[in-house]
Nucleic acid binder design. Structure first.
Lengths: 155, 155
DNA sequence: CACACTTCTTAATCTACATTAATGCACCGG
DNA sequence: CCGGTGCATTAATGTAGATTAAGAAGTGTG
C-alpha cells in the first residue's frame, strides 16, 4: 500500500505487463483502455476520485489494458490479491456492472449510450475531451458531436 | 445443493426475481438473456456441460436476466453466497472474460464476433438455432446468415 | 397424410454510424 | 506577435448491418 503521485499522461500499466497492483484514486482522474489490432484506442473505464482501477486478470498474468492519468492524480497502489480477497461483494457488483454494459452495447443506440455515460459519470463530462468520451462509447468523435447536437436538452 | 431436472424451454429465473441460487450444468444446455424495453431478446451467455450460470447480482437483489433451458438438462442448484466466497479467482476470471467481451463489442465486426463465438463455444454451434447465435452476437439472424455465407471457410 | 408453425436463407431497401475532408478555435512555444 | 498543433464541429459520401418481405425446408400435431 503505497501513495503515488502521477503526472498527466503518465502510464501506470501497459498491455502485456504483469501487474499485481490495483490503483485507488484519491484525487485526479485515471482511465484504462485497449488498443486494437487496427491501432484504435478504446477506453474501457474512467476512474475519478474514490474509484478503483485495475486490469481484471490474475495477479501473475499479462494485462490486456493500458492505464494512464488524464489529470495529475494522487493514487494508492495496492496489492490485487490482498485487496480483492476481502471484498467478494465488490467483485460481484463489478460483474453486475459489466453485465449491464454488455447488454447495453448489444442493444443501445449511440444516444442511449451517451445518456448512460452521463448517468454513470455525472461529473466527468467537463473534465475529459470529447474524443475520449466517444472512445468510451465506442463511436467516433464526429458521431458524438451530432448526438450532442440532436440530444433532447435538459436544463 | 440440489439436483434438478429441467425440461426444454423451462424457465429457472425471470427478470425481477430475487434468486440466491446459481446453476451448475451437469448435462444439457442453459442460457441467460435479457429482454429490452423494445421487447428484443439478447442472449447474454450459454452454459453447456460443466458451466455455471447465474445472474451477477447480490443474492438479495432482483435479477436482470432470464435463465432457461435450451435442451433438457440436469443441473445442480447451489447457493450463490456460499459458492462464490470460496472462489475469488473464478470471479476474477469472469470479470476478465467480460472485460474482453466489452472491448470486443466496442470494436469488432459481425464476422469477428462470430469467429470469437466459435472459439468460445466450439461445440454449441450445432446445438442451438442460428437465431440464438445471432441474438448472442447482437445481430439479426439475417445478418448472421450473410456473415456465414461470406465467411472464409476452414475445413 | 395434411397442416400450421418455426427456422433459415436471399434479396431490396433503409438507416445509423464511419470515413473523409474542410473550417474555426483554443492553446502553446518560438 | 505569429505559426503550429490538436480538438471540435459540420457536411458529403460510404457502408455494415437493420428492416421488410418472400420463399424453401424442416418439425410437430391433428
Amino acid at each position: 500500500m503505497k501513495k503515488i503521485e502521477v503526472k498527466k499522461g503518465q502510464i501506470l500499466q501497459r498491455k502485456g505487463d504483469v501487474n499485481s497492483k490495483l490503483y485507488r484514486v484519491e484525487s485526479g482522474l485515471l482511465r484504462s483502455y485497449s488498443i486494437s489490432d487496427k491501432g484504435k484506442e478504446h477506453i474501457y473505464m474512467f476512474a475519478p476520485e474514490n474509484w478503483i482501477i485495475a486490469d481484471s486478470v490474475a495477479p501473475d498474468e499479462p494485462c490486456d489494458l493500458f492505464i494512464d492519468a488524464i489529470e495529475p492524480s494522487i493514487v494508492w497502489q495496492e496489492d490485487k490479491a490482498q485487496h480483492l480477497a476481502h471484498d467478494v461483494p465488490k467483485l460481484i457488483k463489478r460483474i453486475n456492472v459489466l453485465q449491464k454494459r454488455v447488454i447495453m452495447l448489444m442493444c443501445a443506440s449511440a444516444l442511449e449510450r451517451y445518456e448512460h455515460f452521463l448517468a454513470t459519470y455525472p461529473d466527468i463530462v467537463q473534465r475529459v475531451p470529447q474524443k475520449m468520451i466517444a472512445s468510451y462509447l465506442g463511436i467516433t468523435p464526429e458521431a458524438l458531436s451530432t448526438v450532442r447536437r440532436k440530444r433532447p436538452q435538459k436544463a
